[in-house]
Amino acid sequence: MSDAIVLEGIEKSYGAYPVLKGLDLAVPERSVFAFLGNNGHGKSTTIRLISGLSAPDRGSIRLFGRDIARARREALRETGFLIEAPSAYPNLTASEFLRIGVALKSLPGGEIVRCLRLVGLHDDRDRRIEHFSLGMRQRLALAHALLGAPRLLVLDEPTNGLDPDGIQEIRTLLRGLPESTGCTIFFASHYLDEVERIATHLAVLHEGRIRARSTVDALKVELACALALEVDDAARAAEVLRAQGHAPEVGGSTALTVPATDHAAAGRINAALVGAGLTLYQSTLRRPRLEEWFLRLTGAAAEGSA
């Protein structure tokens, strides 16, 4: 699989303040790539560089193999962006707004209808944007980004500021897009549950550098599950489980945890304990959430750099 976006050795400063310090990143084609990071660590700057809104001090940016410094127009023609502009031009109607992208990307007029249908705004095509809700504006901005069925979608916090219904609408749309259009999605977010739900790949940006990069599936394996047990005699329960090849950790007279990959393994452990005559008060299969992993990662990085 080739890469849709390649960033190599990107450095960017605002005045004396360095924001990106040698950023390297490759985004595989047809992936839904989540770009994570706390506010002020360079996510939006990276997206501005990818969209050509500003130029890096050092390094190169390639979209589908084209260097945007040398072939900006060609590189951007196959890319749709949603960069914090859901309220642009409130005096225009939805159709008029999309005419901007259609004209400047040299697309047929039918693209307006197709994209408005895709985001569920076709019936509102002649309404002025000033009468739209924030969720509708965000969907319209997404429709603008989708004009011409781009091979790459770059979205900066696509659900920022939306109410729960709006968030759900946008997530549902994004989840279905790669399958229906074959495009690559690169999105910045600090909603980690959003990443768990829609991303296939992720990278964590911290203090201007990539701190971790993984597929979401690999991360889920890495973040192994554990079975938290509460029994009448934790020490005896641990003996029973060790005899069966498990590696329990006793956390008190009645509490212990055992590594377990899934519900079937948890069921077998519970059955073994009950079979050995122990009383099982509680059994909970826990997977460390992405949020815990992220906090551990960025917290450790912050401590390391302090």
């Binding site: 969209s51 900006r72 127009r73 951007l76 960069i83 992208g101 603008h144």
Partner: peptide, 17 residues
């Protein structure tokens, strides 16, 4: 038109100079 709501970003991420 562009200063309001940061529409510069919308316009200048299109394939124009």
């Amino acid at each position: 038109n562009e200063h309001r709501n940061q529409a510069w970003r919308l316009m200048l991420s299109l394939p124009i100079q």
